[in-house]
């Protein structure tokens, strides 16, 4: 009874907070100071059509580096925890075979999903999305493969090398910005190029492609670790 009352009180409090927010909301007519700076200067300074990408990769590049580090640590810890429970047995128990629909469908869909993921992170500076979204889409293709054949094994070495190399290139391009442009992770190492084309916005598409590969590799490594764990 007391527990129910507490839950009710909690819901009431939350409701009051949100109602207050909703009633006090007035849509702002113009951008605030920071937003206006980004909206006005992104196109001419960095040459990126997608302002969000310009903020994520260049203006706030250091934050993105932190996010990538957090994701890397998460993948590492998951791998460490799950590797402990793994038993080295050559033959695993028999699993029911995947249905015909799933097998055929995944054969058709996996290349398309991979292509979409690569498209999303290569065009991150032009269209919505970028490294994180594209990486997640690439990893979902790997998950679809695992769903079709739970005993399928990806090469851990390949995933680890891909992740390490992308991370190194990400940092390396950032250091190049320190040497040849305005600061760490400055995208103007390469010329800005024609606005709105694939090869524009300096090194932004290159950095975001490496982020995409890295995120995809990290998600895939988490999934493969999960797939290889035997329940005890």
């Amino acid at each position: 009874m007391i527990r129910r009352f507490a839950v009710f009180l909690l819901l009431l409090g939350l409701g009051a907070i949100f109602a207050d927010l909703l009633l006090g909301y007035t849509p702002s007519e113009e951008l605030n100071l920071t937003a206006r700076y980004y909206a006005e200067h992104t196109a001419q300074d960095l040459g990126a059509a997608n302002i969000v990408t310009a903020i994520v990769v260049t203006y706030r590049g250091l934050d993105t580096l932190g996010e990538v580090t957090v994701l890397f640590l998460t993948a590492t810890i998951i791998g460490m925890v799950l590797a402990r429970g793994r038993k080295h047995r050559a033959l695993q128990r028999q699993l029911p075979a995947a249905g015909e629909l799933l097998t055929t469908g995944s054969r058709l869909l996996v290349p398309l999903i991979l292509l979409l993921g690569v498209y999303v992170f290569v065009n991150g500076h032009l269209t919505p999305g970028g490294g994180f979204q594209g990486g997640a889409i690439v990893a979902s293709a790997a998950l679809l493969l695992l769903l079709t054949d739970p005993l399928k094994r990806f090469s851990h070495r390949l995933i680890a090398v891909m992740e390490a190399v992308s991370g190194l290139f990400f940092i390396g391009l950032g250091v190049l910005g320190l040497v040849y442009a305005g600061g760490f992770l400055d995208s103007r190492v390469l010329p800005n190029g024609a606005f709105g084309t694939l090869f524009s916005a300096g090194v932004m598409p290159i950095i975001y492609s490496f982020i995409g590969l890295k995120v995809g590799a990290e998600f895939t490594s988490m999934l493969t670790h999960l797939a290889e764990t035997e329940q005890s």
Partner: peptide
């Protein structure tokens, strides 16, 4: 907010449901 929408669709409804 198409960028956020994309993340939500890829992680929230794609990857998580698959997982």
């Amino acid at each position: 907010a198409p960028d956020v929408a994309m993340t939500e669709a890829a992680i929230g409804s794609g990857l998580t449901t698959f997982l």
